[in-house]
Design a protein around this nucleic acid. Structure first.
Length: 371
DNA sequence: AAATCGTGGAC
DNA sequence: TGTCCAAGATT
């Protein structure tokens, strides 16, 4: 390691004790006033905190809100989740993406049910051993549900800290360690209480570390925005070294691709059925999930689709065309017969559809516009 | 360590 | 039909 690099690594600027206390005070005061009302806030069930944290991984709040309550109505407890077939879990997860999360949450629920009597562990260290729970999520659940004094570091917290301390984004191990250390220095000690004022029927749950962590993320999500931060509304503006500057690493390139799908419907008595294709279990993407059958682009050359839409998958924007069951089109399907099945449209909410198929069917009114 | 895994809102 | 990127985990 060259000398210059060593010096940079050792140059750990850190808030002193007085600044740290001030930071906490300013942040918590702001959070009490500005915290968004979200469905998983104020909840007292660790299972619900767990579900919310898994759903929120790399996923926008708005998308989670659409699925959170439906998921909990269907699987109200760890045991209920553990007993459900995986396909049912995926069906409710449909549209949220990163389906491995649903599979691992399901597996973890089965472990908790069988081995732990259906009771979720109470420490970050034990939570960390469950499938789907990594460094961020174990800290989030432990602090929010159980008051443990441990820092969470998500994308928001990282950005807030880098701007606060005047550091550029840094994907190396040293960079991550730096952010973790600063985050840890800011978390208050464990302090949990339930304050109830009988006269006014006012009650407030106090959880110093859990609220601090949520406040850090809330600050990043609503004030310390990636592009145009709202510094003039920032509670810790006075302590911030950069006041908005954020040097980020270059991103991967986006690409665009065309895609075509077949929407084939038929009547069975009064019921309507739709032709779906099951993706192979070996598929790296959305294995075992159902979608309307893909069509080769050359089979639809020059034809007019019934629907056009964009569908983004990681770095690819798919510009999708959906075609009705026109003569000859079905013969251009490339899949094996046994991977195709006719499904009653009334049962579609019970089936693990891919996000794209779910979106298409909603847009065309084949399934009701609800989750 | 770097790639992989979904999606959609915002601009 | 361009780009960014969000309460990450796993391999």
């Amino acid at each position: 390691m060259d000398v210059a690099f060593a010096e940079i690594v050792e140059d750990k600027v850190r808030l002193d004790d007085r600044q740290t206390r001030r930071f906490r005070r300013l942040l918590s005061g702001w959070y009490r006033v500005h915290a968004r009302k979200l469905p998983w806030r104020g909840n007292v069930d660790p299972y619900r905190t767990w579900v919310s944290e898994i759903m929120l991984q790399q996923t926008r709040v708005a998308a989670v809100i659409e699925h959170y309550s439906v998921f909990l109505e269907k699987f109200p407890t760890v045991v209920a989740l553990a007993l459900a077939p995986e396909a049912d879990v995926l069906a409710v997860w449909s549209g949220l993406g990163y389906y491995r999360r649903a599979r691992m949450l399901h597996k973890a629920a089965q472990f908790v049910t069988k081995e732990l009597g259906g009771v979720l562990p109470r420490t970050s260290e034990e939570l960390r051993t469950l499938p789907g729970i990594g460094e961020y999520t174990c800290a989030a659940i432990a602090s929010i549900a159980f008051g443990e004094s441990i820092a969470v570091v998500d994308g928001n917290v990282e950005r807030v800290i880098l701007r606060l301390m005047g550091r550029p984004e840094d994907a190396t191990a040293a960079g991550k360690t730096y952010v973790r250390e600063i985050a840890a220095s800011l978390v208050p000690a464990k302090r949990v209480s339930l304050r109830i004022d009988e006269a006014s029927d006012f009650h407030a749950k106090i959880n110093a570390s859990g609220d601090h962590n949520q406040a850090m993320m809330e600050l990043g999500a609503t004030i310390c925005l990636p592009k145009a931060p709202l510094c003039l509304n920032c509670p810790v503006y006075a302590l911030c070294l950069t006041r908005g500057e954020h040097r980020t690493l270059p991103r991967g390139k986006q690409t665009s691709r065309p895609a075509a799908y077949l929407l084939a419907l038929r009547k069975d008595g009064t019921a309507t059925e739709i032709l779906l294709e099951r993706r192979p279990d070996e598929a790296s993407l959305m294995a075992g999930m159902f979608e309307i059958p893909p069509l080769p682009m050359d089979a639809v050359e020059g034809m007019e689709p019934m629907l056009r839409l964009r569908h983004a998958i990681t770095n690819t924007n798919y510009y999708v065309q959906v075609f009705g069951d026109l003569p000859g089109l079905r013969s251009s399907l490339v899949v094996a017969e046994q991977d195709l099945s006719w499904v009653r449209t009334s049962k579609l909410t019970e089936i693990p559809l891919t996000g794209l198929t779910r979106k298409v069917l909603k847009r065309l009114g084949v399934i009701a516009v609800k989750v």
